[in-house]
Design a protein around this nucleic acid. Structure first.
Lengths: 243, 243
DNA sequence: TCGATTCTGTTGACACTGTCAACAGGGCAT
DNA sequence: ATGCCCTGTTGACAGTGTCAACAGAATCGA
């Protein structure tokens, strides 16, 4: 393994493209006209959708490790590398998967809040239940959303937006809780409080996703029940008699 | 992509080995004598160690995604596939990396506890600080330890043991806290309480590792300070005047 | 209406990966 | 001394992500 200078320095015959290109949407040619949306073959509604759906299925089934363009393309009924007309690279596809994940998570949080009793504690509990249940049901997707398959979320504006929306929803809920519970002349840093709440919820979700809870015996405890057990615990301490 | 039956069904000419083999240590030949430790070339102390060290460096530097046998082997001064005399496969190598991670984490927790003031709250805070600081300093290693690069920890007994030891340490600390704080006739489920504490700590660590906290302005808050801010917050609520 | 342009998909290639079989030499026990 | 086993090398194979070159179809500008 000594001998420097092997058979490197091939490739890149003509142009010098491919070197610097944003990880954005698809391969650009020329922005020019603004109406470049419904060109080319109709293809029943867009290959892009099909590719995302196929990727979603595969990610759910076997995680992000065994996810390959060839299999995705096969499921979508096209040849490999067709996907490169719709996604810059694999990371861009995963960003789309993550984006859909945040949309779904937001939906679930809104649902749970709507179903909750009309007090801030119940509403927050609803969001936490939605968060953890979502993670438990779609662990691989959850990992794509929060893991390092997408090293820099800022390179994917749509994903960034979806993330921020979910984030804002959660923060608003936490702020309400704090407002409601924080009487009594205490001054608490809202950011620190939010981070604590998020850590609690995200931590439980992560531990479930990574298979760290429920090793033996009790088999499968409902994730929602775990969250409720936690909030009950907090209430117990909040209402405990003074020492 | 049509035409079934391509040029498959090659390989596997002679023996039928490689089919069923545990994901344990290295390629077994015959356990036989118990003294098979210092055979072959001396190689300054074992290639296995060098491989783990090289893998550690690379994992820290660029995560588990760009981790390749060839580069690892090059750093260790051997040829690719030499590693297969010491590790069943890549997962086994990662398991070794994770195992070392748990050992290191345990060390740090013990250190912090030793340095802490002599009350249970401080000792627990010390463990939490160790946990989160470790994650922040070695995010890639933390991910290997808790992520899904190793799908089933039970296939790696040494890793399982290291994990369980750390886990036990943490649980013992939480149990002490509960014992100390749980006066007042309340009955709390110790498992639920432990899970809550672990979720809080692990959640903060995960959020930091995945770059979810500290997006703007405040740049780099010390992870230990974040933990202390959290425990202070909890104390504030624990000691708040009754409503 | 018609040619030019631009999308979108296919084909085939390249560099690179994990893993394995076949081989080779050194150290150990017999 | 002999033979076995350990540990390393070499070279291969199947499979990966990505790209260049090509080809048909839909649209736009004239």
């Amino acid at each position: 393994m000594g001998e420097a200078s092997r058979k490197k320095a091939r490739r890149r015959p003509g142009t010098a493209r491919g070197a610097a290109r944003a990880a954005g949407e698809a391969r650009p040619r020329k922005p020019k006209g603004a109406a470049a949306r419904t060109r080319g073959l109709p293809r029943d509604g867009g290959l892009r959708r099909d590719l995302i759906d196929a990727a979603l299925e595969l990610v759910e089934a076997s995680g992000t490790r065994g996810l390959g363009w060839r299999e995705i393309a096969r499921r979508a009924g096209v040849s490999h590398s067709a996907a490169y007309r719709h996604f810059e690279n694999k990371e861009a596809l995963l960003a789309a998967v993550a984006e859909e994940g945040f949309h779904r998570l937001t939906e679930r949080m809104v649902e749970q809040v709507a179903e909750a009793r009309d007090d801030v504690a119940s509403r927050f509990e609803g969001m936490a239940v939605a968060y953890v249940e979502f993670a438990a049901e779609s662990p691989a997707r959850f990992r794509v959303m929060f893991g390092r398959d997408i090293p820099d979320i800022n390179k994917h504006p749509a994903l960034r937006e979806a993330h921020d929306f979910t984030d804002g929803l959660f923060r608003a809920g936490v702020a309400q809780v704090l407002e409601n519970v924080g009487k009594g002349g205490m001054t608490v840093d809202i950011d620190a409080f939010t981070l604590m709440a998020w850590s609690l919820v995200h931590g439980l979700a992560s531990l479930i996703v990574d298979g760290r809870v429920g090793d033996v015996s009790e088999a499968a405890v409902d994730p929602g029940d775990r969250v409720r057990a936690m909030t009950d615990l907090i209430k117990t301490f909040a209402q405990r008699p003074r020492a």
